[in-house]
Design a protein around this nucleic acid. Structure first.
Lengths: 348, 348
DNA sequence: TTGTATGCGTTATCAC
DNA sequence: GTGATAACGCATACAA
């Protein structure tokens, strides 16, 4: 069954297919009597219009695609919920799709945009390199990058973006630790195989903060997990363990993400140390879990809800013919006690 | 640009559209020379075939839809990763889609199945009531329910399922607490507004375990958060706080999910108590976070990877014309020290 | 108010 | 090897 189409419905209800179409889309005038009859047949046979055919025919829609690289990251999900609520309230249909590890975010977006004939796209995550002028031109429809940006070569008029300044906020996070008296500060991040991602920028912030304070940037304090999927709690745990074994004098660690920070925190406990008495920990993102962890973790918090709303608003603007825009938000350190103030005499 | 179609490509490369189609789909024979020429034009113009048209024409595909209600739940994501890896390796394309709070899982699946002409579907989460015979018949294609089941009325031949016995495992979790000497055991769950979901079954297991041991089922020990989105850490936190204020004699709590358990654990600390010295905690699911929490939490662990693999295998079976199947896995208690053994004299 | 005919971009069946 | 051409299911201009 269900291999039933508009023609069948028309035949079964004794009308023409145009009438069925009118009933379906509430366009044009149909007498109440035939409308009722057609609806009955539709219900009875559970007829569902074939969207491929519809999209093939139609030109414009109210479908918006949201594509997320690593939907497992709770930080993305926070934004996703806001976007979903907002756009649904505005009468749009949403297609929320997870981008697998080995799929290219823009290729998926382009293909889906055509297939589902989307009228707009929001992209979260992914690496900068994916976002080229060429791809945006192929995409054709308004596109907002959220939490990521495109490389400098890319024509900024082709897309909007909502981000934070990852370098600056990375810098500020480390400054915070330095101001609390820390000198031996470890850094946990993910090697994205040379591609530009926010974590590279945060790393640059780390380096700048140290350098500016006259501190040495030491290889042994910088730990990355070369594994491709090195973004989970376990990766933070493993990497931190190594880092601690290598650096008995380390008093603080800055993690590229909260997920890594939590794994790192567990490693501290597993090594028989305490937070913040022995090791101070600062994460990045501001996911809910940092609040509920024991102890709660300090983190460089991105204003997820505001950023999500901004993305929605910019997308709407573009869809109304306004130009592209680029908003950079400020993050803020949430201080919850996982960072200890080092007194002079306690410094190594 | 990009409003370019197969006809344009044909014209631009001086061939017929059938040839272009052959090049695209590698079907039929094409001389290497023309193949090259066509490919060049395709590349040059960034031509991407319109999938709507393709799906409209095609009958069968290798597209599988995976629909997840509440993708935010880390437990689902664990399975998702396994499914993704497995099916991709077998040459299938995956469509992973999040089902919003106010969408019906089966309606989305049915509509997508038609639109994308899927050859199979895996559904995770959602409430039992959505899964009726009628809907499965509309869906037409092989469908596996993962972590959920359908009501008894639904014809079991119409779908496959991979689950645990939620009532039994709920029972076992509470038994575990009782065996450790606990008598005043709180229960944290989510009120799904009367709909049947796994947490109702786990609740029934809780009741049975108490009753069987001659313990009273007390209203005051059972806490639910009436809010619709009552599945987050914060909900566990709030609810547990209430529960503790209400029940100073409570020595243990069983949470419907690990996420709630973690929120509850935080509440214990916020109230100045310790785990497990003052309150024992047992969660449900076996998400990674329970291992990395401080302290690690005991949980009724579902064999996520095995279940995901089973779902994939059953789906493939159905796609090969085999009948539906229903596998029920065993969960197992992971003991990590968040449950304390109560000595006789310490019981109230 | 209703029905008929055309085309959306593909794929596949034919002839050539 | 290759090129017309007929569907696929729908929306819509146009005729009735």
């Amino acid at each position: 069954m269900a291999d039933i189409n508009i023609k069948d419905i028309a035949r079964l209800s004794g009308v023409g297919i145009a009438t069925v179409s009118r009933v379906l889309n509430q366009t044009g005038a149909v007498s109440e009597k035939t409308r009722k009859r057609v609806m009955d047949v539709i219900e009875q046979y559970h007829y569902i219009p074939n969207s491929s055919a519809r999209n093939l025919k139609l030109t414009r829609s109210k479908n918006i695609g949201v594509f997320v690289k690593y939907m497992s990251n709770p930080f993305f999900y926070m934004m996703l919920e806001v976007i979903e609520e907002e756009l649904t309230a505005q009468g749009y249909s949403l297609l929320v799709q997870d981008i697998g590890e080995n799929q290219n975010e823009m290729d998926v977006a382009i293909s889906e945009a055509m297939q589902r004939n989307l009228c707009g796209v929001i992209l979260m995550g992914g690496s900068f390199d994916s976002y080229t002028s060429e791809k945006f031109r192929q995409l054709e429809i308004p596109c907002v990058l959220l939490t990521v940006s495109a490389p400098g070569e890319t024509d900024a008029a082709l897309y909007s973006s909502v981000t934070i300044d990852d370098e600056k906020e990375g810098y500020r996070a480390v400054r915070y630790l330095i101001e609390q008296g820390h000198r031996k500060i470890g850094f946990l991040y993910r090697d994205a195989g040379g591609r530009v991602t926010p974590n590279i920028l945060r790393y640059q912030g780390y380096v700048r903060a140290l350098t500016e304070s006259g501190l040495e940037v030491e290889e042994r304090l910088i730990a990355t997990n070369a594994r491709v999927s090195g973004l989970g709690y376990r990766d933070g745990f493993r990497t931190m363990k190594l880092l601690m074994q290598l650096n008995p004098d380390m008093t603080a660690v800055f993690a590229f993400s909260d997920v890594l920070a939590i794994g790192a925190a567990k490693a501290v406990f597993a090594m028989g140390k305490r937070i913040p008495e022995d090791i101070s920990v600062v994460g990045f993102d501001g996911i809910e879990m940092t609040e509920f962890y024991n102890p709660a973790l300090d983190t460089m918090c991105q204003p997820a809800a505001e950023m999500a709303l901004a993305a929605v608003s910019m997308l709407r603007g573009m869809m109304n013919g306004e130009g592209a825009g680029h908003r950079v938000f400020d993050a803020s350190v949430l201080k919850r006690g996982s960072v200890r103030r080092l007194e002079q005499e306690q410094k190594i």
